[in-house]
Amino acid sequence: MMVAARSFQVPKYLDASTPAEYRGISRDHVRLMTLDSVTGKHFHHYFYQLDSSLREGDLLVLNNSRTLPPVLKGKRGKQAIEIRLSRKLTDQEWEALIVEDVCTVGEKIDLPGELTATITGKGNEAPLVILSFSKSGLDLYDAIYRYGEPVYYEYIKTPWPLEMYQTVYASVPGSVEMPSAGRAFSWKLLNKLKRKGVKIAYLQLHAGLSYYENDRWPNPSNHPEAFRIPEETAEWVNKTKKNKGRVIAVGTTVVRALETAVNHGGHVEAQEGITCLYIQKGYPLKAVDGLLTGFHEPEASHLDLLTAFIDEKLLMKAYEEAISAEYLWHEFGDMNLILPMEEKR
């Protein structure tokens, strides 16, 4: 099932093409719109004021996957080729997008550092292919970090360094696009939240490509991504639910991982694997109560997931308000918190 098109349009002047640090502010000084998921009532703040919307006993779950530089530029004969890695399959194989070109199985691409990639098959969905590299394990990661670049979509006008595509707490390499919902956090803010009694837990979900160029997006009902939920995180989620606290996912990646790990008894289990979970309107959320996320394009399947938290009419009304109030979109943009504001009884 593909995402339904929404009627709103984001003006190009609201595309955040520059990281906050290069706009003269710190990460946690981007703007924040908080939505009551029940009433749709919205509040305007700055991200460093996040603590005003949270309370003692809440749990924030963050994705500490670290972003790789997945764009590799090589040659097929004399022809320039751009590869965008999407998902690791084995120590030597990746699913990838070959940009603006058609390649066939068996073709070899020459890359910097005496690295080659051979197309061995079709990927999970078109237009992805499977690449087998001449190096594996740490040697392959070393080549990717030495010669790769971040993904720069059309609204990015400057080739920002890889560090701009990391959250401050990122520690486990694997994502090809930044889990951007957590980008606005600073250690100062995280410590401020801890002092208030908000618990912090981590998991990993390695984000794949979110866009395949030429108006092509991943099929949200068949988009596998690797995840890992540690024992401690599962315990904190279950304890928070038992104590009637709110579990707040920092990013749609965290929602997918936690909801995938819910067992028949309604508890989150520590586990690792691959998730293809597609969350949309009417999905019965069992692990997560609230969501901290960015603002999404009308074509993005992330909006389907948001409608599991809040009625779509209320969400679209809030998005219209965000456009009117000139909130910024994309990974360097402003933030949106969706959660029930009333105390649980």
Rank of each mutant, 00 (worst) to 15 (best):
G197Q: 02
K194P: 07
A226K: 04
K194I: 08
L205N: 00
L189R: 07
K194D: 11
R228T: 06
P230Y: 15
Y212K: 08
P220Q: 02
S186K: 12
L203Q: 06
R195G: 09
K192Y: 13
I200N: 03
Y211K: 10
K192R: 15
L205H: 00
E213T: 09
D215E: 15
L193P: 04
P230V: 14
L205Q: 01
Q204N: 13
L203V: 15
A184Y: 05
W187M: 13
D215W: 03
L190P: 00
E225Q: 12
W217V: 02
N222Q: 14
Y202N: 05
N214P: 01
S221P: 01
E225V: 09
L209F: 04
K188Q: 12
N214V: 01
N191Y: 05
H223V: 09
Y212S: 10
P230D: 15
A207R: 05
L203K: 04
A226N: 06
Y211V: 10
F227L: 01
L190S: 00
K194T: 12
H223M: 06
H206W: 10
Y211S: 09
Y212D: 12
E213V: 06
R228G: 04
A207Q: 15
A207L: 14
E231V: 11
V198C: 04
P220E: 03
L190E: 00
H223Q: 10
K188F: 12
I229E: 07
H206R: 02
E213I: 07
I200D: 02
I229T: 06
E225A: 04
A184I: 06
N191V: 01
L190A: 00
N222Y: 13
L205T: 00
W217M: 01
K199S: 15
Y202D: 03
R228V: 06
Y202C: 03
N219W: 11
W217F: 13
L189C: 11
E231W: 14
E213W: 10
S210G: 13
L205E: 00
